[in-house]
Simulated scan of single mutants.
Amino acid sequence: MSENKDTIYADPLREAGLFTFDENVARVFPDMIKRSVPGYTTIVAMTGLIAQRYASPGSRLYDLGCSLGASTLAMRQNLRSEDCRIVGVDNSQAMLERCRNIIDTDTHETPVDLLCANLENVVIEDASVVVLNFTLQFIPLAIRDEVIQRIYAGLRPGGVMVLSEKLTFEDPHLDELNIDLHHEFKRANGYSELEIARKRAAIENVLRPETLATHKRRIAEAEFSSCDVWFQCFNFASLVALK
């Protein structure tokens, strides 16, 4: 993947606007997400191992909000089941164009279909694994319950959903602590105070985090048999939910 450095919010004279997954973001995305999301590399790598465990022969694996295909590749490179197919979905054409180039350089043979669409419009069917790594947080709050319910309906019995999200906390002191620690993480990775502030202003009305309790409630109401956190660092967590 490209390692172009993320300097999108470094120029004070450049209008930041709302955060969007355009060509500018796609160009620097690997650097941006590694320097902005604690544990991202671990989450992606373990997504591949979870897929290896739960993928069943002849099924589909979905990467919803696939961006440049990191989770798609992790699943593809760890699959042991035969006749599977991976479906990567993203609503950013700029992301998908770069994703296709990356997928085409991979030597593993599992077919990968890339679909440019809003994930709430995608039919999930005959799936053994569905991954949403930092995707649901960009979906309108009003339809998040429906999205999770439709994923459950499209999973085979014994299938798994991986849901990774930025969190908010009910306790305001814990919320402030985790936000501050996240900002310290970004400073340690070379982001300036200006970049941190401008990125936060650009994304706060686009990314709507929820509490862990809200995610667990939604998953339980969709009738998943079990769910819990398998990874957390500051206000970023990943859950597994089993059908």
Rank of each mutant, 00 (worst) to 15 (best):
Val44Leu: 06
Val44Thr: 14
Ala45Cys: 05
Met46Phe: 11
Met46His: 11
Met46Ser: 10
Met46Trp: 10
Thr47Gln: 09
Leu49Cys: 07
Ile50Arg: 12
Ile50Tyr: 13
Ala51Phe: 03
Ala51Trp: 01
Tyr54Met: 09
Ala55Lys: 11
Ala55Val: 04
Ser56Val: 06
Ser56Asp: 03
Pro57Ile: 01
Gly58Tyr: 05
Gly58Gln: 12
Arg60Cys: 11
Leu61Gln: 13
Gly65Asp: 12
Gly65Phe: 12
Cys66Met: 06
Ser67Val: 13
Gly69Val: 12
Met75Val: 04
Arg76Cys: 10
Asn78Asp: 10
Leu79Met: 13
Arg80Asn: 12
Glu82Met: 05
Glu82Ile: 01
Cys84Pro: 15
Ile86Pro: 10
Ile86Lys: 05
Val87Ala: 02
Gly88Ile: 08
Val89Met: 00
Asp90Ser: 08
Ser92His: 00
Gln93Val: 14
Ala94Glu: 10
Ala94Lys: 01
Met95Phe: 12
Met95His: 04
Met95Ile: 12
Asn101Val: 12
Asn101Glu: 15
Asn101Met: 11
Ile102Gly: 01
Ile102Val: 14
Ile103Gly: 02
Ile103Met: 08
Thr107Phe: 05
His108Lys: 08
His108Pro: 04
Glu109Asn: 14
Thr110Pro: 13
Asp113Asn: 11
Asp113Trp: 00
Leu114Asp: 02
Leu114Gln: 04
Leu115Trp: 02
Cys116Arg: 05
Glu120Pro: 01
Val123Met: 10
Ile124Pro: 05
Glu125Val: 09
Asp126Thr: 05
Asp126Ala: 07
Ser128Gln: 07
